[in-house]
Design a protein around this nucleic acid. Structure first.
Length: 509
RNA sequence: GGCCCGUUCGUCUAGGGGUUAGGACGCGGGAUUUUCAUUCCCGAAACACGGGUUCGAUUCCCGUACGGGCUACCA
């Protein structure tokens, strides 16, 4: 099995593309096949520098490294279509030699005029087809000599597929079953553009054939043009090695109607790209799942389960489990709405199930962003405490900063509620006891506090919130004694003293 | 407009001629808990509609509605 992911480097690639890559990758791995990356950069107008690097970095971050592709080696390269120009021209000419295609000299303006004419005549969609090609300027209506003259004169021309009449094109789709198209409904698609570049249709079919692709797994938006692709395989005489087709349902907008688009992310304030993209303008810059604090394993798991489900109630899958369970016949037909809440739940589950060492590695970049470079064992200890209270990795910077630096923000409302000035002498006494504590472990600190509570008359439930506020500045967080153990004796004493000195004037802090 | 694809809780989905239509997210309630969270329990919530076929359709068929995709010298 040989499959390919074939994006166009026209900018950032959103999660719909990643989902397509995931399906291809999973299927390849499942069948010990080869996963190929092919860059479809045949549109010079839409080419965006940096987009290819972005695609590759995104795939790598998701753990979807290609087996073959630009920069990945492979015996079927080059894997960038812009480097295969000669091949396409050759095959386009071959099509003409076989009588399956023809030269067309109509200018874009002339085509536009035809469309306008049809429109005013009440015909919604004019197309260059078996009927209209009879009246257009092409090698079918021109004599051979005239055609030669046009070409030799340097006039711009395209090569169009000569779609046959009266045939039914049969497509066998692994996900949708049998789909049929009547050739009368199909237009004579351009194969080779005036700039010498092939269109998607030609390049795609030629490359899939040359690269020995066995399964074409792509988005549903390609289903209508698959009829042309089948016609092309037939025209080239490649029918017996035509790949299997599978058209994946689309990922839909979180709200409203239609397929997910780039703009939905900024509009709703949620990531829709794997990693951040810095475009020329602010409008063309987007935050990625990576930067938003997602674990790539969670993203892949979430995306894999969009429109696919093995029929069990399992939702959390390791990479190996995904590979073992994935199959095209379990892919649904209907589009799936992108739900960021569910994506967050997956992330929370992955963080919760990570070891302290794994979590530390994931969290470190986000702490570094805040200027924190904690010692590894200390970080892991914090991760052990935060594991079940983080959803996104950005939560570390937002909710655990007091582990790595001074308390930045005090919940003054809670302090006002819990602080009792009359207790100050007693609390100072408790501070001294703490300073004298030799074994700095959660259990023993707790025992000390409990013993002190016995003798002081201050209630346990009265003292804990104060510790929490003093150490973290907030009422939320891990168990107080675990927090103390991790923070260390010196820090605890220091913050306790600070609290006793300042909690009287909560407004000032 | 034409062609093509689709339609089970708000969302992701399982199921499939006879089921109390299952699970998950989210939401509401409760239990545990020193806070928050985790964990556990409970709850509300769905087969688009109309015809067939059938003893019986959510499930099969046909329509309709609705949604989506495509309809470029873009992919």
């Amino acid at each position: 099995m040989r499959v390919r992911f074939a994006p166009s480097p026209t900018g950032a690639l959103h999660i719909g593309g990643i989902r397509t890559a995931i399906c291809n990758y999973l299927l390849a791995r499942r069948h010990n096949g080869v996963f190929i990356l092919r860059i479809e950069d045949t549109d010079q107008n839409r080419y965006v520098p940096g987009a290819e690097a972005y695609i590759i970095e995104s795939l790598k971050w998701c753990g979807l490294t290609p087996d073959e592709g630009p920069g990945f080696g492979g015996d079927y390269g080059p894997y960038r279509q812009s480097e295969r120009m000669d091949i396409y021209r050759e095959y386009a000419e071959d099509l003409i030699a076989k009588g399956e295609a023809y030269y067309a000299f109509d200018t874009p303006e002339e085509l536009e005029a035809e469309r306008e004419k049809a429109k005013t005549a009440g015909n919604h969609a004019w197309k260059y087809d078996a009927v209209s090609r009879e009246t257009m300027r092409n090698s079918l209506t021109l004599s051979e000599a005239e055609t030669r003259k046009w070409i030799d004169s340097g006039a711009a021309y395209v090569i169009r597929l000569k779609v046959p009449v009266g045939r039914t094109v049969h497509i066998r789709d692994e996900i949708r079953g049998d789909v049929h198209f009547q050739t009368e409904e199909l237009d004579d698609k351009v194969m080779l553009k005036a700039d010498g570049m092939p269109t998607y249709h030609l390049a795609n079919v030629v490359d899939d054939h040359l690269m020995k692709i066995t399964h074409v797994i792509r988005g549903e938006e390609w289903l209508p043009s698959t009829a042309h692709h089948v016609l092309l395989y037939q025209a080239f005489g490649w029918e017996d090695t035509m790949p299997v087709f599978a058209h994946l349902p689309l990922i839909l907008k979180p709200d409203g109607k239609g397929k997910l688009s780039k703009r939905d992310g900024v509009r709703l304030g949620i990531p829709v790209f794997p990693i951040s993209w810095k475009g020329e303008t602010a409008e063309d810059s987007f935050t990625g799942f990576r930067e938003a604090g997602f674990d790539p394993r969670a993203l892949v798991n979430f995306l894999a389960l969009l429109s696919w489900n093995p029929g069990t109630e399992q939702e959390l899958f390791s990479r190996e489990e995904l590979i073992a369970a994935f199959s095209l016949d379990k892919v649904g037909k209907a589009g799936a709405r992108f739900d960021i809440e569910k994506a967050k739940w997956f992330n929370q589950q992955y963080l919760l199930n990570s070891s302290p060492a794994e979590l530390a590695a994931l969290a470190r970049p986000f702490l570094a962003e805040q200027g924190f470079q904690p010692d590894e064992s200390y970080l892991q200890a914090v991760c052990g405490l935060m594991r079940e209270r983080v959803t996104l990795l950005t939560d570390f910077g937002a909710e655990a900063a007091y582990f790595f630096g001074p308390v930045r923000h005090f919940d003054t409302a809670s302090i006002a509620k819990k602080w009792n000035p009359g207790r100050k002498p007693a609390l100072e006494d408790l501070g001294k006891r703490l300073a004298g504590q030799s074994e700095w472990k959660a259990d023993s600190i707790k025992a000390l506090v409990e013993a002190w509570v016995e003798s002081s008359g201050v209630k346990f439930g009265e003292i804990l919130p104060l510790f929490r506020l003093a150490l973290a500045g907030t009422m939320k967080g891990p168990g107080v004694f675990e927090m103390m153990e991790v923070l260390g004796s010196a820090t605890v004493q220091e913050r306790w003293q600070f609290a006793l000195d300042h909690f009287d004037q909560t407004g000032i802090i």
